[in-house]
Design a protein around this nucleic acid. Structure first.
Length: 497
RNA sequence: GCCGCGUUCGUCUAGGGGUUUAGGACGCCGCCCUUUCACGGCGGUAACACGGGUUCAAAUCCCGUACGCGGUACCA
């Protein structure tokens, strides 16, 4: 198997890449890279022209790249099996559809949507709860199996609208082995004569998918569980063409915390970003998303939790993917995010913060040295990089308001204590305005007044930061500098007396 | 409705006949550290859906039931 593995991620560009799609892509990627020279292909399945969304293709590529996945073949990467966009492969599907008709595995059907509705209605009325266009009903419909040969020719020549349908055998059992689920079987009587070629000339997913997977020499089909029930149709197609069926692996679905497949609507209700784009915009750490997603439905079998993309490639195997749906746990994602955030050197974070700040029109960042120090004080307290800006706001500008909860700690004797502390640090010059001195000065004041540490520390924190929580106060003051600290204390004294 | 797939702590999972008083992680709770909030460290809470088999022995194998999810289109 080594060296010959070829897998594809095949999204339809009907919107931005969502988190479930991203995980499918990730598992395909991990599987491909697990083998030395596996190939990871991106194929665009744009056969539904009415749902095409402008910019979706670019979004998919950007999302994958943001996560660190390298694409080997795609419409934007050279490959020997293109084109990689299904809308550009129409002729291929047509010629294969014709082969199917010639070998009596498919047929032309001329029924209008209205006629199909009527058929279903009629069958429902006569007690059939799930009407199908199948081996029985096709005998009473307008198709090349029931119409005289010359009328079929005439209709085709006249340019009448038609579809090509798969001639599903009446009574057969389709069996296949799924790498994740094991033995799976379906009866063909539950299937209908699937449309292969639509009346607009485009293939349906089923035809295009099978033809492309074969033409592109895909060895393993790794996709979401929602495809499991259409797999027998695909098997039938492979058999009709006389092709080998690739290995199949159907992934468990990602579920919403409230139950059901994680949909856009549900995700939004529960505060979970649904599109990869949103994770990028909200400045999540890509390593965190990747690590989290990899573990959503898979585990390496030991107690490890943290792995880079490269490590995941090494560890990943399909037989360790779980079968049941996995609920998206946003808090665990944040935990991963915190982990990868803290791992980064302050200098790297500083450069990134500058970009984040620019995006948010955040001004007044201090110089690099100060910024780095501020980051090192803040990064252990936030979940996402952008929160450094929020929590550390006081490093960048004077507090405009005081946190209400914190204000409760400003007692009647606070002003006097803060005043006394201000006097004591006035004597420190800029160079000696350091955390240790600032702390010992505070200790002197509280000892003299015989009060607890917090009695002065909290009001002082409010004065300097406007908040009731945050990084080490003395280190923060040192970073802010004497002038700023004194200025803020004065201003607070004025305001709160 | 029918067809298919699934079901171990609240969540993600390990475990796949005896190694299990069912392990880890997130969360939650408590303690320690501490000037606050965090980080960190330590500890705790909490699960084999149910009922029948098979077996000396079942979370693990089989069969049912329940529940969940997916599919049932000229959408993917």
């Amino acid at each position: 198997m080594e060296g010959t593995v070829r897998v594809r991620f095949a999204p339809s560009p009907t919107g931005f890449l969502h988190i479930g799609g991203l995980r499918t892509a990730l598992y395909n990627y991990l599987f491909a890279r697990h083998f030395k020279s596996g190939t990871f292909i991106l194929r665009i399945e744009d056969t539904d022209q009415s749902r095409y969304v402008e910019g979706a293709e670019e979004d998919i590529i950007q999302s994958l790249e943001w996560c660190g996945m390298e694409i080997d073949e795609s419409p934007f990467h050279r490959g020997d099996y293109g084109p990689y966009r299904q809308s550009e492969r129409k002729e291929i599907y047509h010629s294969y559809a014709e082969k199917l008709i010639e070998s009596d595995h498919a047929y032309y059907a001329f029924d209008t949507p209205d006629e199909l509705d009527q058929m279903r209605e009629r069958l429902q009325k006569s007690g059939n709860p799930s009407p199908k266009y199948d081996a029985v009903t096709r005998q009473s419909m307008k198709n090349s199996l029931t119409l005289p040969r010359d009328e079929v020719e005439k209709r085709l020549d006249a340019g009448d609208e038609y579809v090509v349908r798969l001639k599903v055998p009446r009574r057969e059992t389709v069996r296949f082995e799924d790498i994740i689920r094991g033995h799976v079987s379906f009866e063909t009587k539950g299937l209908d004569d699937q449309v292969l070629l639509k009346s607009d000339g485009m293939p349906t997913y089923h035809l295009a998918n099978v033809v492309d997977d074969h033409e592109m020499k895909i060895t393993h089909v790794i996709r979401g569980e929602e495809w499991l029930s259409s797999t027998p149709k695909h098997i039938l197609l492979y058999n009709a063409f006389g092709w080998d069926v690739p290995e199949m692996a159907h992934l468990p679905l990602i579920m919403s915390p409230s139950g059901g497949k994680l949909s856009k609507r549900k995700a939004e209700e529960e505060g979970i970003p649904i599109n990869t784009k949103e994770y990028i915009k909200q400045n999540y750490e890509p390593e965190a998303l990747v690590n989290f997603l990899a573990y959503l439905g898979w585990s390496p079998g030991d107690d490890s939790e943290i792995h880079s993309l490269d490590e995941l490639c090494e560890l990943f195997t399909l037989d360790r993917v779980s079968k049941g749906g996995a609920v998206f746990n946003h808090k665990k994602l944040l935990w991963y995010n915190e982990h990868y955030l803290r791992e980064q050197p302050d200098g790297v974070l500083a450069e990134r913060i500058k970009k984040v700040a620019a995006d948010k029109d955040h001004v007044d960042l201090p110089d690099d040295e100060h910024l780095k120090k501020a980051i090192s004080l803040l990064k252990d307290r936030v979940s996402k990089i952008e929160e450094i800006l929020e929590m550390g706001d006081f490093f960048f500008k004077d507090p405009e308001a005081y946190d209400e909860k914190a204000l409760k700690k400003w007692k009647s004797d606070s002003a006097a204590l803060v005043k006394e502390y201000r006097e004591s640090i006035q004597s420190l010059d800029e160079e000696n305005f350091e955390a240790v001195s600032l702390k010992s000065n505070l200790e002197e004041v509280i000892n003299k007044n015989d009060v607890g540490f917090g009695k002065l520390m909290m009001p002082l924190r409010i004065a300097v930061t406007g908040q009731g929580f945050g990084p080490d106060l003395f280190a923060s003051m040192e970073l802010l500098g004497k002038e700023t600290v004194i200025k803020r204390i004065n201003k607070t004294l004025e305001k709160l007396g």
